Simulated scan of single mutants.
Amino acid sequence: MFLRLTTALTTLAVAAPAIADEVNIYSYRQPELIAPLTDAFTAETGIKVNVAYLQKGMIERLEAEGKRSPADVVLTVDISRLAAVVNAGLTQAVESETLKANVPAAYRDPENQWWGLTTRARIVYASKDRVAEGDVTTYEDLADPKWQGRICTRSGTHAYNVALTSAILEHHGAEYTKTWLEGVKSNLARKPQGNDRAQVKAIWSGECDISIGNTYYMGKMLSDEEQKEWANSVNVIFPTFENAGTHVNISGVAMTKSAPNKENALKLMEFLTSPKAQEIYAEANFEYPIAPGTEAVELVKSWGDFTADEVNIMNLAGHRAEALKLVEEVDFDG
């Protein structure tokens, strides 16, 4: 039976010992993305994959289950979420030359607690009709009064925006970041709301001229008949930090501290970082693969080239609490 409910996995943990030909995942990633990967892994190895798709509360669940947890690996997006699981003491270091060969050092934990799978850039969607080429080039520029009443974004407390604010902190410090947040807030066309795609819809409808979003949403919108019109109304802009690169974040994987199927978990992690799986990721979710020798799909490459910011991505996780505090201090969502 293909397990998709957390309750089912909990029952597995209590009622039965680890089964040699299975591996269990707790995932914040969507079923439509994970299924092609797990199907390919099972076809290649014969190992059955059970997935519990969680909306929230992964750390709390793992802590409550303790050593009886059935989870072997966790999958999530955003460096702060990965770091939170590690900092809670719920993962274990994994030594693997295959993983090291597949995952560049910039996208893995120095202590081998988590491993990156794909990247995405946090970019600007700009109206083709109302924003000229070159009007926005940096993240710092988003606080410029010229954008007053022209920016849309999702909640400032969402993990994606907190990561961007963390990057501003890394580059400029707390005082500048607070002023920047106040500037961006004053430029908003409406109260932060919805997801990244909702912001592009707002540009299409004329509510705002630019928005902040992740690159892969362009691919998702172009794949949807209703949303294709929204996507075609905007250009993809890759802003940079002043004297630095474009902000990127990651999806990643980690082995749980009490993994009952440790050997199979390692096989799964090595598969997920392999060029074959990276290509599945790239095609299914329009993300940038990180394994050496892999490339984004043609649609993604058509949006343009960019140079990723070279800041240590773990530094961003370390700034999360301060970034969130500053977002709340300026009442960004108010």
Results as ranks from 00 to 15, higher is better:
Ala259Leu: 09
Ala259Gly: 04
Ala259Phe: 13
Pro260Val: 09
Asn261Pro: 05
Asn261Cys: 11
Lys262Arg: 10
Lys262Glu: 14
Lys262Pro: 00
Lys262Ser: 14
Glu263Ile: 00
Asn264Trp: 07
Ala265Ser: 12
Ala265Pro: 05
Ala265Glu: 09
Ala265Trp: 09
Ala265Ile: 10
Ala265Tyr: 09
Leu266Cys: 02
Leu266Arg: 02
Leu266Gln: 08
Leu266Pro: 05
Leu266Phe: 01
Leu266Trp: 03
Leu266Tyr: 02
Lys267Gly: 07
Lys267Glu: 08
Lys267Thr: 09
Leu268Arg: 02
Leu268His: 03
Leu268Pro: 11
Leu268Met: 14
Met269Asp: 09
Glu270Gln: 05
Glu270Val: 05
Glu270Ile: 07
Glu270Lys: 14
Glu270Pro: 07
Phe271Thr: 02
Leu272Lys: 06
Thr273Val: 03
Thr273Arg: 10
Pro275Arg: 11
Pro275Ser: 09
Lys276Ser: 03
Lys276Ala: 14
Gln278Ala: 15
Gln278Met: 12
Gln278Lys: 11
Glu279Pro: 07
Glu279Phe: 04
Glu279Cys: 03
Ile280Met: 10
Tyr281Phe: 14
Tyr281Asn: 00
Ala282Val: 00
Ala282Trp: 00
Ala282Cys: 01
Glu283Lys: 15
Glu283Ile: 01
Ala284Met: 08
Ala284Leu: 02
Asn285Arg: 00
Asn285Leu: 05
Asn285Val: 06
Phe286Gln: 02
Phe286Ala: 01
Glu287Thr: 15
Tyr288Arg: 01
Tyr288Val: 12
Pro289Glu: 01
Ile290Gln: 10
Ala291Val: 02
Pro292Glu: 11
Pro292Lys: 13
Pro292Met: 10
Gly293Val: 08
Gly293Tyr: 11
Thr294Asp: 10
Thr294Arg: 13
Ala296Met: 15
Ala296Glu: 15
Val297Trp: 02
Val297Thr: 15
Val297Lys: 14
Val297Gly: 10
Glu298Arg: 13
Glu298Ser: 15
Leu299Ile: 13
Leu299Val: 08
Leu299Ala: 06
Val300Phe: 09
Val300Trp: 13
Lys301Gln: 14
Lys301Met: 07
Lys301Asp: 08
Ser302Gln: 11
Trp303His: 05
Trp303Val: 02
Trp303Asp: 03
Gly304Phe: 07
Asp305Gln: 12
Asp305Met: 05
Asp305Gly: 13
Phe306Arg: 00
Phe306Glu: 02
Thr307Gly: 09
Thr307Cys: 06
Thr307Met: 04
Ala308Arg: 09
Ala308Tyr: 08
Asp309Ile: 04
Glu310Val: 06
Glu310Leu: 03
Val311Ile: 12
Val311Asp: 10
Val311Glu: 09
Val311Trp: 11
Asn312Val: 04
Asn312Ser: 10
Ile313Thr: 04
Ile313Glu: 03
Met314Thr: 14
Met314Gln: 13
Asn315Tyr: 01
Asn315Trp: 03
Leu316Val: 13
Ala317Ile: 07
Gly318Pro: 05
Gly318Val: 03
His319Trp: 11
His319Arg: 15
His319Val: 08
His319Gln: 15
Arg320Met: 01
Arg320Asp: 02
Ala321Tyr: 06
Ala321Met: 06
Ala321Pro: 03
Glu322Arg: 06
Glu322Leu: 12
Glu322Tyr: 07
Glu322Val: 12
Ala323Ser: 04
Ala323Thr: 01
Leu324Met: 07
Leu324Pro: 00
Leu324Asn: 04
Leu324Glu: 13
Lys325Thr: 10
Lys325Gln: 10
Lys325His: 08
Leu326Gly: 07
Leu326Val: 06
Val327Met: 15
Glu328Trp: 01
Glu328Asp: 12
